[in-house]
Design a protein around this nucleic acid. Sequence first.
RNA 1: GCCGGAGUGGCGAAACAGGCAGACGCGACGGUCUCAAAAACCGUUGGGAGGCAACUCCCUUGUCGGUUCGAGUCCGACCUCCGGCACCA
Length: 740
Amino acid sequence: MALNYNPREIEKKWQERWARDRLYEVREDDPRPKWYELHMYPYTSGNLHVGHWYALAPADVHARFMRMKGYNVMHPMGFDAFGLPAENAAINHGIHPHTWTMQNVENMRRQLRSIGAIYDWNREVVTSLPEYYKWTEWLFLQLYRGGLAYRAKAPANWCPSCQTVLANEQVLPNGTCERCATEVTRRDLEQWFFRITKYADELLDNSKIDWPERINIMQRNWIGRSEGVEISFDIEEYGLEEKEIRTFTTRPDTIFGVTFMVLAPEHPLVSKLTTPEHKEEVERYIEAARKQSEIQRLSTEKEKTGVFIGSYCVNRLSDEKVPVWIADYALLTYGTGAVMGVPAHDQRDFEFAKKFHIPIKTVIAPRGWSGEELTEAYVEPGTMVNSGRFNGLSNEEGKKAIADFVEKESIGKLTVSYRLRDWLISRQRYWGAPIPIIYCDKCGTVPVPDEDLPVLLPEDAAFKPTGESPLKYHQGFVHTACPQCHGPARRETDTMDTFMCSSWYFLRYADPKNNQAPFSKEKIGYWLPVDQYTGGAEHAVMHLLYARFFIKALRDLGLVDFDEPFLRLFNQGIIIAQRHKMSKSRGNVITPDPYVEELGADVVRAYLMFIGPWDQGGEWSDSGINGITRWFNRAWNLALSDPDELAGRPADVKALQELERMTHKTIKKVTQDLERFRFNTMLAALMEYSNYLATAWESRSVDSSAWRKAIETFLLLLAPTAPHLTEELWEGTGHPYSIH
RNA sequence: GCCGGAGUGGCGAAACAGGCAGACGCGACGGUCUCAAAAACCGUUGGGAGGCAACUCCCUUGUCGGUUCGAGUCCGACCUCCGGCACCA
C-alpha cells in the first residue's frame, strides 16, 4: 500500500537523532520521580518474531506514556542467554553455544532497535557472559551460606539408549526419547535445591502487590497450602529401625474409615516392607511407575493401579490392621509420600478399593443414611459413625477432636502441607552458569571463595550426549585444589537452571557495569522495586514465583530492603499462529521484519495494539494492517493541512464548543486506556477523534487557532504509539524538538 | 487429568458498574474519479419479515437450564479452544 510519507526514511532519521541526543539514557540524579518499567527479557532464540513484537511494542508504549507524564523512566532490555536451545544448536549444527548465542544477540539487537523503543542500551545484560554469571554464582553462594541451598537426590528423565538426561521437552508425549524413540525412565541423581518452601506462607501473601487476580489464584493453587494432621500408623511388628508410617491427611475425621495404606512407589519404606513373595511384582510395578510422567500419574481419569506389598500397619485409633499397598497416585513429593486409604470418603481411594476388592467402611453418615452401601465416595459433611468414642459428633467437630486426641497421645500432630516443592536448580548440561561448589574428600562441600569467581565455563567442553554433565569430562575443569586444605578436589559439574539468571536480572539493570558487586545498594535503592512489570502469563507460576522467592531470600540476607520485586504486573496474551504459540520448535514463527521494512515500525506497533485486548492475545493475521496504514496516511494529511486556510472565517461557537468537548473526551479516554493497557480501544478513540477532525476540516467550521490546538493534542496522544510519525509531524507543524 | 483463561456479525473486536448488542477497523457490495486498473474518496453492510417511503416487527452474544422488571455481563451444568503443570523459556 502506498504511503504519503516514507517510514523507512523518517524512522531511521529519528532513531539516529534520539540515539545521538541520548534521549533515552537515564540517570539516578534526575529530579523527576523514578519509574521502573520492565518487560520480560527475550530468550536468545535467533529472531524476534511477531510474538515478541506483540509483547514489546505495547510495553514500550506504556513506558513512553509514563515518560510523557513526567517520570524518569528506566525501560531496559537484555537477553536471557543460557539454556537448552543453544546447546541443541551445538549438538545439531556444530556451532559453539557461545557463538550461536552472540550471533542471535547481535541480530536481535538490530531487530529491537527497529521497534523504536526507549530502551537504554547502556544497561543491557547478557546472562551468558562472565561479567553477568559471575554474580549469578555469587548469589548462589549467598543463598548457600544462608542455608537456603542444599543437596538431595531427585529423579531426572533418563534415556537408557542415549545415556543422557532429557528435559521434559525432549520426551515425546508417548513417553519416549525424541532422538531415539527409546522409552524414557527416571533416574535418581544428587542435585541442588533452593528452599523456596521456607517462604511458602509469605509467597501466599499478595497484599503488597497489584497483580491480575488470575495470576494470584494460579500462584495460590500452585503453592497449595492445606492444613491437616500428620498421623502415624504402627509397623513395630516388623522390627525395623522405623516404627511407623507417617501419613498426612486433611480429613482426620475419617481415620476410622481407613481400610488400606498406600505408599508412593519411591517411598523408602517400600523395600523394607515388601515380603519376599511380593518382591517381583512390586519391583515390576516400581519400574513401570518410573516411566510415567507426573501428569499421567495424577490423572483422575485413568484406571487405578497398585500392588499389595505383603505387609500391614496398625491404625492406632481403631487398632485395626490394614494392608500396605503401593500405587502411582501417591507422590513422594507431596505430604509424607503415604496416603491413608479411606475409600468411603475419598473418590480416588474409592475407585482403588473397588478395583482391588478392599472393604469400604462408612464413617461419616450422610443425612438419613441407614447403612446402605455407597455408590461413590461421600465427601459432604455428616455425622460420625463406626468411629468409637467419636460417634455422634459432626465431622467438623470430629476433625478437631481427633486432631487433639492424636496430639495428646503422640500419634500425630497438626501440620501444614504444601503442594509447592523446593526448587531444583541443577542441570546436567553445559550451557548454564556453573554451580560454584568444590567437593573435597577431607573438607566435604566447599564453596568457591568470592575472589575465585567466576568459575568460568570452559570453552572446549564436549557437548555430545555422554551420560553425564558435559563438564564432568573436562579434566581441566573438574580437577582443582580444595580452597581450604589445598588438597586435590573436584568441581561440581552441573550448571544452574536458567530461571536462576532471570530471578535477579532486573536488579542488574540498575547497576549493569558494577564489577565489585552484583549491584550497589544506592542504585538498587533508587530504582527498585520494579514499578510495572509486563510479560507473558505463561510465566505465572514459575519465573514469577521464583523471582519473588529470590527477592525475599536476598532481603533476609541483607542484600536488598524490599519484599516484592514487581509491584504491578500486567500479562499480555499470546499471539498464536496456526492455533499455537509461536515457537521455533513448532515452526510457526512469523517474522515482523518485512512488515516493518515496507510499512514502518509505527504501523506494526499500532496494528498489534489494535488487534484486541492486550491481555487476551489473538491469532496473527495481516488482513487488517491496511486499516492502520490508511489511518496514518489520513492523519498525515490532516496534520499538515494549512491552518491559514481557516483564518478569517467567522467562528462557529457551537462547533468550537463541540470540538473542545470532543478533545477532552478523547484525552480522558486515551489516558485511562493507557493506564489500563487497553490499547485497542485507545486507538479506536483516536480514530474517532481524527475522523471528527476530518469532518470539522471539511466543513471549515472552526478557526485556525482551535485547529492548531486540536492537531497538537492529537499528535501528543498518538506519540507513545507512533513515536517516529508524530515526531516528524511535530516538527512539520512548527513545534520544537522533541514531542517526546 | 489438575490449575487458570477465552468463546459476540463474513473477520479482528466494542459494550469498563445488570440497562439501546455490534463502537472502531478489516473484508464484501454499490458509486465517484480513470481509456482501464490500482490508490483515494462517498455510500451500504448481523439474520429474517413487512412497507413507495421516513420506518415497523421478529430473531441473535458456544450449548442447556436458572436468578432478575431487565442477562453478552450474575448462578449451575456441559461443549470447544488456548496457556501452565516444576528440565522449553
